[in-house]
């Protein structure tokens, strides 16, 4: 074993170590952290979204039956990594992937309390302003993502009563998406930004009725779709 040689650290040595450490530390921590955390910075801090904020067509409101909901799949285009729009537009004629990426959401549609309003019975052709507004007010547009832990909810009939059931932990919601029982902290997520157009089609945007969980502590979003 070689004898250890413990030289005294001079003031200059100490400052040099400090300088080397500070420069290397700054270069090796700040850019990597920002690199890895960029989605968090973009979404949580700057409030941007990866999902297109354009109107997406859901379908004709005439298809929504009385007394039970129907499920409709809607693709919301998203903009992540290789699905990024600007990246996709580069060299469009080569073999490079140009596939559009979307998050496919199952949307439950039902009438308020399962009752289609009188004025909207047997609609065909174009809708009047009043009818459109009435439809917008009376439609439940619900995400299939359970408000508890995000499992896909289903419509089940229990003892003649229909209800939304989450298969994971047994959360139960009524036809309006309101909370009935089980562990979920709130009702199902709704799409509040909606528009019924003159041709009778429903359009929505990718927004949810977020709410504070424990004020200041937690907020809720579907997070996954």
């Amino acid at each position: 074993m070689v004898e250890l040689q413990k030289d005294r650290i001079t003031r200059g040595d100490f400052l040099s170590f400090g300088f080397i450490g500070a420069v290397m530390g700054a270069i090796l921590t700040i850019p990597p952290a920002a690199f890895v955390l960029s989605p968090v910075i973009k979404t949580n801090v700057l409030g941007q979204s990866d999902v297109s904020q354009d109107w997406q067509m859901v379908g004709p409101i005439d298809d929504v039956p009385d007394g039970e909901p129907i499920v409709i799949e809607v693709d919301f285009p998203i903009d992540q990594i290789y699905g990024n729009n600007e990246v996709q537009e580069q060299f469009p004629d080569t073999q490079k992937s140009n596939e559009e990426f979307a998050v496919r959401s199952a949307i439950w549609l039902s009438w308020q309390d399962g009752q289609r309003p009188e004025e909207l019975q047997g609609i065909n052709g174009s809708l009047t302003q009043e009818q459109r507004q009435l439809a917008e007010e009376n439609l439940n547009i619900l995400s299939n993502i359970c408000a508890h832990l995000g499992c896909p909810v289903r419509w089940v009939i229990v003892e003649g009563e229909g209800e939304f059931l989450c298969p994971c932990h047994g959360g139960i919601y009524d036809i309006n998406g309101g909370y009935i029982g089980g562990p979920p902290p709130r009702g199902m997520f709704r799409y509040p930004v909606r528009e019924v157009r003159e041709d009778g089609n429903l359009y929505i945007r990718h927004e949810f009725d977020d709410e504070d969980g424990i004020p200041g502590l937690t907020t809720t979003r579907p997070h996954v779709v």
Binding site: V71, R104, A106, C151, P152, R154, W155, P167, C168
Partner: peptide
């Protein structure tokens, strides 16, 4: 994987 599943039990 299908985000739009309704009859899948996780």
């Amino acid at each position: 994987a299908n985000t739009a599943a309704v009859d899948y039990v996780p």
